[in-house]
Design a protein around this nucleic acid. Sequence first.
DNA 1: CATGAATGAGGCTTCATTCAT
DNA 2: AATGAATGAAGCCTCATTCAT
Lengths: 213, 213, 213, 213
Amino acid sequence: MGIRERKAREKERRRQQIIVAAKRVFSKKGFNKATMEDIAAEAELSPGTLYLYFKNKEELYASLSLRILQYLRIRVEHVHKEAGPDPQEKLEALIEAMYDVYDFDPLTIINMFHLQSSETLKNLSPELLEQIKKLSRQSIGDMARIFEEGIEKGRFIKAHPMALSDILWSLFSGVILWEASKNAINQDKDYLKETLKVAFDLFRRGVGADKGD
Amino acid sequence: MGIRERKAREKERRRQQIIVAAKRVFSKKGFNKATMEDIAAEAELSPGTLYLYFKNKEELYASLSLRILQYLRIRVEHVHKEAGPDPQEKLEALIEAMYDVYDFDPLTIINMFHLQSSETLKNLSPELLEQIKKLSRQSIGDMARIFEEGIEKGRFIKAHPMALSDILWSLFSGVILWEASKNAINQDKDYLKETLKVAFDLFRRGVGADKGD
Amino acid sequence: MGIRERKAREKERRRQQIIVAAKRVFSKKGFNKATMEDIAAEAELSPGTLYLYFKNKEELYASLSLRILQYLRIRVEHVHKEAGPDPQEKLEALIEAMYDVYDFDPLTIINMFHLQSSETLKNLSPELLEQIKKLSRQSIGDMARIFEEGIEKGRFIKAHPMALSDILWSLFSGVILWEASKNAINQDKDYLKETLKVAFDLFRRGVGADKGD
Amino acid sequence: MGIRERKAREKERRRQQIIVAAKRVFSKKGFNKATMEDIAAEAELSPGTLYLYFKNKEELYASLSLRILQYLRIRVEHVHKEAGPDPQEKLEALIEAMYDVYDFDPLTIINMFHLQSSETLKNLSPELLEQIKKLSRQSIGDMARIFEEGIEKGRFIKAHPMALSDILWSLFSGVILWEASKNAINQDKDYLKETLKVAFDLFRRGVGADKGD
DNA sequence: CATGAATGAGGCTTCATTCAT
DNA sequence: AATGAATGAAGCCTCATTCAT
């Protein structure tokens, strides 16, 4: 009775094998210049095999983001539901979660933001697109509720909670993309972590209601 | 004796004609799905003609950003040099400039951020890349100097000025891309302007040194 | 355990199939007017398939010559090493070899001479060019050594052996091209074989040391 | 009454200017890689102008050969008609003419042989093709008549006179093409003149009737 | 399931040629 | 006569995808 499970596990392993390869290749060459053959070679599989696991190139590309969105979703939900009652603390936990999301898979997260800002999004299968939208909505939604609480408690400035979560997310993705872009051109030192820290500091200060108010 | 000038003007007009068409097509279809033939048709020219004005598809794409970067550069320089001595006022002027940059050409600015976060950047001709880098560097550099002054005068938090300008830029581009991405999927109301406003408010608050300090 | 061999054999068969088709098309239309699609159609394959076997059009063109150069190389080497000690006999064998080389593949040999006298040569991949150069050098070198022996034995005129082999080869290719060119314009009788015979007779007489000397 | 002549002379000058440019460009790049724009640039004219003087690219290419064929034709005719009665002397004069033809315009002569051995020949306008054929026929014909005389006088071997002139011509073109091809690949010393000398020596010996006969 | 050879649509680009000025 | 910008046909080649083994 373990045989079916083993099959399933092996199938999942193969999927991961492809995902890992795709991640590397897409990160190095970008969506267009990366070929399915490149990815197959990196995964030590034949091109045909990729199509047993992914409907086409775009879905494979999008699939990379899925795991990270799931991870994000779990972390954010956890912060929302389980962290203490203090909004500031929750914001800290949220920021902590974002660092972890980045460290979880730096290559993929850049891929994901590229996807976000790309025509590819428009060409996904409805199912996959729905999954992505759902996960995004949930994460952003939970983030918004955290801000909502903070606003109600007078700890955060009075702004639309959804706007705040969009802004936190935009800041996060904006900094990552901009630093990645700078690194792509110059091979300077990578200032990402430093810049992110300042960015989050700034966000914290910016979102916090003035003490005297 | 005006004949040479007229020729030059016509040549420039033709270039603009192509740029306008390219802008539309790239915005609608994205870099990959847009074909040179699409663009030629939109410009009511033959495909071959495009190559009299642009070396290839990627350079045409990148050229779109150039005008906007120049506009940005001028505006930022102006703020840096000519605005009054008050750092906060300069920041206001800077934010004002960014709104104007966006309004100057919304389609193109999204293109530009896509380009920024794209493999295409690596395939440009050295000259064009150099132009883009130079304009970016100048704008970001001037922004950094504005922050520097503010920090010296104790009006802004003590952070690396370059980091602050990177963050302002990242916030700007991050919000625009994220909202564009949301609009691409849902055809909801466009919250860009509102969100940008909150984002800049937040930035202002975040970057300002506390009154009590 | 025969499966890999069969694959290899089939792959080689496919290559030959393409070569045969290319030979026909190039001979009929010449390098420029022949299109890869023509060749694919002649080979009853799709255009893309050609590129699985040949890097590009020029390499396919050049590949045609390779087999014939190999054949030439083997024949000349054989004459050089194995034919009797008599220089005159060796020259006969050499001339015999040249006739055979021509008969081995008349279409291709004309292709080969066109290639030789063409800009195409400069655009080949270094590896292929090296192969061609090597085979040519070996054949011409062996021919030169045959002449060298004859000169040492006082049977051939005192001339630079390399010059003699260049001349024999030039005479051979010159006559073939010239006759082919005449045939291309007029559709007269084909005098190639007769002319070649006279040419070789003349060469034999010309290269032979005078009896009385 | 000189104005029309001056016009005509200027027109002819312009033609020559183009021919000179075309010669250089074709020699450097070969027929296919050379573009009309290259040639126009080399001639310091605009592309459109070329078409005022030559119907198309192929005719321009072929025109290069025309002048040299005319020169050849004149020289050969002169040898045929005016040189002394001695066949050997006439052969000398013929060989001398060939050297001169080569020196007259080395670049063009290689062009001409490329043309001879090329698909281009098949695509010329009937008129131009007819001119080329006529000039070739006349030259080769006159050469054949020289050999004929020599044979009748018992000074040359008994062979078909036309074959002999074809062979002399083939030898000449074969050596030139082969040496050019060698030079194109290696940048060795150019052995053309030395090899040609040996080739003609050999021809002389080969064609001469044995003294003892 | 895996393979990988084959497909073939379609894109980018070139360039000979034309024509309004 | 000269220009040179514009044309547009057509070629080479790539590569996502399929399918017989």
